[in-house]
Nucleic acid binder design. Structure first.
Lengths: 200, 200
DNA sequence: TTGACAAATGAACAGTCATTCATTCATATT
DNA sequence: AATATGAATGAATGACTGTTCATTTGTCAA
């Protein structure tokens, strides 16, 4: 087996174990066993436990960024772009619960360990949202007084909370399509009953 | 010192330490020291470490529920009620960062430890949002096709993510009033530029 | 076949901490 | 003053686990 393959194998195992047990309750030996590798082998590929979590996170978010970017490539309508972002994010979280879980873990458990939080894949990911919003504002389709840097947080936060619930499965669950449409419509037109709104 | 006082003192210390170090990195001896109490004393008031986190969480959320309910008491306009909820939540999170932190921790780290997630203060808290929405729908001020059970997640998630950022203080930060207004307007009227919307 | 190098192993180490409990202290009662 | 009761203490315990490294295994060129 090639070195690259083993690295990958460990990443996959780590994702699974972190997602299932959380970072602190995951043992290196759990991950090693899941990857069918000796405990020590892990340290040939990663510096330490936290380095693994970070690698898992960056790798997965990187894939997400690529996926979304490829989806958005053809599209030029900001409204449609936002719909695509929301749809894709929710679909991926639903499809890959471990990913959703690892995002949750990394985002809250390890802030305290790490200082530099700016230049990473995750910021890049969220900035896709704010770029869409800015574009929409420039085109006059989105309200100009919305702060893109705040809106990106609101939108991500909403989706992240919904994904969290999927992973606990409390709440009688709604179909993903319905959920997606709800989120899109809430952020586009709000919950207020508009006199003019006749759209479905 | 009375027994009740000591219980309280420990809760306060635990909140502080959990917020600062996270659940898993917080040592009982840290909390004991912060509370100016012997390690063993803690076990006279709590069963174990996790029991403390749960107590802290329930206690703090309980206060929030009371606060919000008292704020909402006088109000009957659903739109205004939602504004009050959002304003109060964000204000409290800003004021008490430890609280925000403990919510983050408890919500993601311990789901895995606990099974019953239904009947607790936190559900009660979120259900205030959905009750407001239902009321607004009954009165015809909120869109009828919005699912209250989903909207409450979206609204809470958005605010929680914003509070998370406050606690890391990345992002050039906006004043709290502006942030609050943004969140309110996003959820009420959305980000789409409406032809009819002339309101500030 | 041999030797050299790299990859992999997993037992052992070293440190950490939640929890316990024998003992001490504080207070109230007689 | 003597005793009883419960609260508080904190050192000791015991279990756990991230990381290391001496050793083994695999690979390939000469």
């Amino acid at each position: 087996m090639k070195t690259a393959d083993k690295h990958d194998k460990i990443i996959r195992a780590a994702t699974k174990v972190f997602a299932k047990k959380g970072f602190f309750n995951a043992r290196i030996s759990d991950i090693a066993k899941e990857a069918k590798v000796a405990d020590g082998t892990i340290y040939l590929y990663f510096n330490n436990k936290y380095d693994m979590l970070l690698s898992v996170f960056e790798e997965k978010i990187g894939r997400l960024v690529n996926l979304i970017n490829s989806q958005l490539e053809q599209e030029d309508d900001p409204r449609r772009m936002l719909e695509i972002f929301i749809t894709t994010h929710l679909r991926e979280m639903k499809k890959n619960k471990n990913l959703a879980e690892v995002i949750q873990i990394e985002l809250r458990q390890t802030n305290k360990m790490v200082k530099d939080y700016r230049n990473n894949k995750f910021s890049e990911y969220l900035n896709i949202i704010s770029m869409i919003i800015k574009k929409g504002q420039a085109k006059g389709v989105f309200r100009r007084d919305v702060l893109p840097g705040l809106a990106k947080r609101a939108i991500f936060g909403a989706m992240d909370e919904i994904a969290r619930i999927w992973n606990i499965n409390i709440d009688s669950e709604y179909p993903i399509d319905e959920t997606t449409n709800q989120v899109i419509s809430i952020f586009l037109i709000g919950i207020l009953q508009h006199p003019t709104t006749g759209k479905s």
